[in-house]
């Protein structure tokens, strides 16, 4: 999504968000992410108002003091930025890819099932299966921090069974153009 993104040409406008809208965003985030109110308030205090940065292709980035915090495509789920995931790695369900897949992910490729089901990879056990269409944080074998964010294209059990094709569609990854944007 952010493989090619430059703030000068792709941003169409910045507006501050209405308080009522902010309230609904806040409650949405609390229900979508594994995060409690206190933690959320650490990086997004109640009194601070968000800036909505509208970008091409219906991407909206929400920023606080110019620093992007999370973004959304159409009115889909909210994704935190990768820097936020580094700070609070528990907010999204986690999957892990093996070492061989890292360089492809860093080139912006979608994640194929074998990279997730192999020995180096990790998918949650059957009882906490991740449904398709869920934002996930992608970690890497032998690494401590997340390397990208994606959205599952099939249930994790299905990934195990089918074990081919795209399992997770990459949304943002380390070193893409959103990563390069420090402030908007």
């Amino acid at each position: 999504m952010f493989k090619k993104f430059s703030p000068s040409t792709d941003v169409s406008g910045q507006t501050s968000v209405k308080t009522s809208v902010q309230r609904s965003i806040r409650s949405n985030i609390l229900s979508q992410w594994k995060i409690d109110q206190d933690t959320l308030e650490q990086f997004w205090p109640k009194k601070e108002s968000l800036i909505l940065v509208k970008c091409r292709d219906h991407i909206s980035i929400y920023a606080l003091h110019g620093e992007p915090l999370f973004f959304q495509h159409f009115d889909g789920p909210f994704y935190p930025t990768l820097r936020l995931v580094h700070k609070y790695p528990f907010i999204l369900p986690m999957v892990r890819i093996d070492r061989g897949a890292i360089r492809f992910l860093l080139a912006g490729a979608h994640m194929m099932c074998p990279g997730l089901t192999s020995i180096g990879g990790y998918l949650p056990p059957p009882e906490n299966e991740i449904k398709s269409g869920t934002p996930v944080a992608i970690f890497a074998e032998g690494k401590e921090h997340a390397v990208g964010l994606g959205i599952t294209k099939m249930d994790t059990e299905e990934m195990r069974r089918v074990n081919r094709n795209i399992g997770i569609e990459t949304v943002t990854y380390l070193g893409d153009d959103l990563w390069a944007v420090r402030s908007l």
Binding site: D36, Q37, D38, T39, E41, Q42, F43, H86, K87, Y88, P89, F90, I102, R103, L106, K143, E144, H145, V147, L174, G175, W179, A180
Partner: peptide
Amino acid sequence: TSQAIPPIKVRYCEVCTFPLEYCEFG
């Protein structure tokens, strides 16, 4: 008693801006 979980401080590489462990892929 506050539930707030403090953020993890990640050290980023000064050259390539990645977390240190990912420099090898930069």
